[in-house]
């Protein structure tokens, strides 16, 4: 908070808060978000059960669709945008995402290599006895 001079005075936005819009514009924002989210959800469920696409591409497609839908939720429902009034909110989000990717990515990475670098558990048990 030491470099607050970079932020226009009195012009921060709380997370979840929008710039001053009319009620109609705000409702329209939620409708757009709902339609986009429903489309992405329908695509996810369709992709998961279809034979039309190359099967090994399905997990990647599902993850990409999920990240896209999370983005839609963040922008249209939580109103986290890249505007200058949202800097603090986006920085907190970026740090949270960093921790999430370290935890999930690190766990999956390490655990998938565990069997390659360690003898299987029953072998260790036999060595002890």
């Amino acid at each position: 908070m030491s470099d607050q001079t970079h932020i226009p005075a009195g012009h921060d936005l709380a997370p979840g808060e929008e710039e001053q819009h009319s009620v109609g514009e705000r409702i329209l924002g939620y409708v757009v978000g709902l339609v986009l989210a429903l489309l992405l959800t329908a695509t996810s469920f369709f992709i998961a059960g279809t034979d039309l696409v190359w099967q090994p591409s399905i997990p990647v497609a599902l993850i990409v669709l999920a990240i896209a839908q999370m983005g839609v939720h963040l922008v249209f429902f939580l109103h986290i945008t890249t505007g200058p009034d949202n800097t603090n909110n986006v920085l907190a989000l970026a740090f949270g995402l960093l921790v999430v990717f370290l935890v999930v990515g690190g766990t999956v990475w390490i655990m998938s290599h565990l069997n390659g670098n360690m003898p299987p558990m029953d072998q260790i048990m036999r060595m002890r006895t």
Binding site: D12, P15, G16
Partner: peptide, 12 residues
Amino acid sequence: IVTAYGFWVFLL
């Protein structure tokens, strides 16, 4: 702003 920001950090 302070309240919502604190809650945002909790949500994260």
